[in-house]
């Protein structure tokens, strides 16, 4: 019962539909169109202070607030789950300020805001996946200066990234990067897929849904249009590969999904279950039928 939660909630009438004022929405909408027109390029936008802290999804929230309407059905996940506290908090925010229906079902959602995962259930034409992005610049940890990285993108000068991946091979015998694994979008821009596990990278490639990425603190929006090639960087002799588990999900038996590891007793016994709670529940219900 989200509406009875707190007495200090601002009275909803004091704020515009979907929280943002119309001028701010127009500014974000223009940035989104530019992002779609130049896939993988980070469009600077006048990010606003949101009533949630920076680092907790303010970029994704601004993108969602700029696109969402009363006809939408919103799903919010964090770590693949609908019931993690931050997902609950963001979903509650939109249910209140945007008068929007919410769902946990991937296939029912028209807009899905996510942190750190891409749903296991394949997305469809017409769905929009909104990613929360902490550090939009894929080269940031290799070159902290914005003035430098902007030039590198302008020149398509991505040697520094290749060198970094090659160093990983030299050290570990393989590319040891596991999440936020860099991708090349439509053969032009290297892009951060946000901190999703590399397990999810193949889902970004030629996905029929529209992918929008919002970084609030860093004030950047970028996009991958439907059906756009998204290639995870690799080398011919060290092709890209995803995580594999020898276990299967303890609840639904899936061997195809990303698994969370839980420690179930003091002796350190492990149990693995699907990170995508909707996918897991759908499979369990199907098995019961």
């Amino acid at each position: 019962m989200p509406d009875t939660i707190s007495s200090n909630d601002p009275s909803d009438g004091a704020y515009n539909y979907a929280y943002l004022d119309e001028q701010t929405k127009r500014m974000i909408r223009r940035a989104i169109l530019k992002a779609v027109a130049v896939p993988g390029y980070q469009v600077p936008f006048g990010g606003r202070e949101m009533p949630l802290p920076y680092g907790w999804g303010t970029g994704g929230i601004q993108v969602t607030a700029a696109i969402i309407g009363r006809d939408d059905t919103l799903k919010v996940i964090d770590q693949g789950a609908d019931d993690t506290t931050n997902a609950v908090s963001i979903r509650r925010f939109f249910a209140r300020v945007a008068d929007v229906a919410t769902t946990t079902r991937t296939e029912e959602a028209t807009v899905i805001q996510t942190r750190h995962r891409v749903p296991e259930t394949p997305l469809k034409d017409g769905q929009i996946l909104v990613f929360q992005v902490p550090i939009p610049e894929p080269l940031r940890m290799l070159e902290p200066r914005e003035t430098e990285t902007r030039t590198l993108h302008a020149l398509s000068e991505y040697g520094v990234m290749q060198v970094s991946l090659y160093e990983s091979i030299a050290r570990h015998g393989r590319i040891a990067k596991t999440y936020n694994y860099p991708v090349l979008v439509n053969g032009r821009y290297i892009m951060s897929p946000s901190p999703i596990p590399k397990f999810d990278n193949p889902k970004l490639d030629r996905n029929p849904a529209l992918q929008l990425y919002g970084a609030g603190r860093e004030k950047r929006i970028y996009a991958v249009p439907p059906h756009t090639p998204v290639k995870s960087l690799d080398f011919d002799d060290h092709p890209f590969e995803i995580e594999r588990w020898t276990e299967c999900c303890a609840l639904c038996g899936s061997t195809q999904s990303f698994l969370d590891e839980m420690i179930v007793d003091d002796a350190g016994k492990r149990r693995f279950i699907c990170s995508d709670t909707d996918y897991c529940q759908e499979r369990q219900e199907e098995q019961r039928r």
């Binding site: 119309e22 909408r29 169109l33 779609v36 700029a66 696109i67 529209l210 249009p225």
Partner: peptide, 19 residues
């Protein structure tokens, strides 16, 4: 109805840019 009309219009424009 500026807030709701412009939202619907924008989504149509976004759909056009995305396709």
């Amino acid at each position: 109805d500026p807030a709701h009309d412009s939202q619907k219009l924008f989504r149509a424009v976004l759909d056009a840019f995305a396709h």
